[in-house]
């Protein structure tokens, strides 16, 4: 068989293999630091956790510390629900009076349906919240929308309760 008849090139190929194996062992993106020892032989390693994760509850600006930061949606819907209005208006007021503040809106979907379509759905939800904030006084430049689709569920599980908690937009104030 021709394709596997490698006698002539075997020695050369083996040499290549060592070189390739060694040179590709630790391909990393900039500032790679996974904070652990992960082998990624022959592959690559990303720079790990996002530096834009936003602030956790206790770090929120005092004016918005008691407001909801997670807003839920109905199945296959991207309409902001009435129950979210009051807190989103308060976030918008804060952004309006603090032009240096920025928020990141992370849109999510439940696991049903296809992943790329759900990414699009998550973005639509994020955009709906972004529009709501802007109508109520926030500046376009203060709001960024990122969709994770179904890739980062808030809860695991495959029932309607889990799905309801995963169809959401998370509002995060960017690090000061």
């Amino acid at each position: 068989m021709r394709a596997l008849n490698v006698t002539k090139v075997a020695a050369l190929a083996l040499t290549f293999a060592w070189v390739a194996g060694c040179s590709s062992t630790s391909t990393q993106t900039d500032s790679a630091d996974m904070g652990g020892s992960m082998g990624s032989e022959g592959g690559a390693m990303t720079s790990g956790s996002a530096g834009m994760g936003g602030l956790s509850g206790s770090d929120l600006p005092a004016e918005v510390a008691n407001l909801q930061t997670v807003f839920y949606f109905d199945f296959d819907q991207s309409t902001v629900k009435g129950e979210s209005f009051a807190d989103l208006e308060a976030h918008a007021r804060y952004l309006s009076s603090n032009p240096q503040a920025n928020v990141r809106l992370e849109g999510h979907a439940d696991e049903r349906g296809t992943r790329e379509y759900n990414i699009a759905l998550g973005e639509r939800r994020g955009n709906a919240v972004a529009r709501f904030l802007m109508v109520n006084g926030a500046n376009a430049g203060q709001v960024e929308v990122i969709s994770y689709g179904e890739e980062k569920p808030a809860v695991m599980g495959h029932g309607s309760d889990s799905w309801a908690q995963n169809r959401r937009v998370e509002l995060k104030y960017a690090g000061r």
């Binding site: 996974m34 992960m38 082998g39 990624s40 032989e41 022959g42 592959g43 690559a44 390693m45 990303t46 790990g48 956790s49 996002a50 992943r115 790329e116 990414i119 994770y148 890739e151 980062k152």
Partner: peptide
């Protein structure tokens, strides 16, 4: 099986 990319953030498609 071998790993060609690892990340703490999602990989897709």
């Amino acid at each position: 099986a071998r790993t060609i990319l690892e990340s703490r953030e999602p990989i897709m498609s």
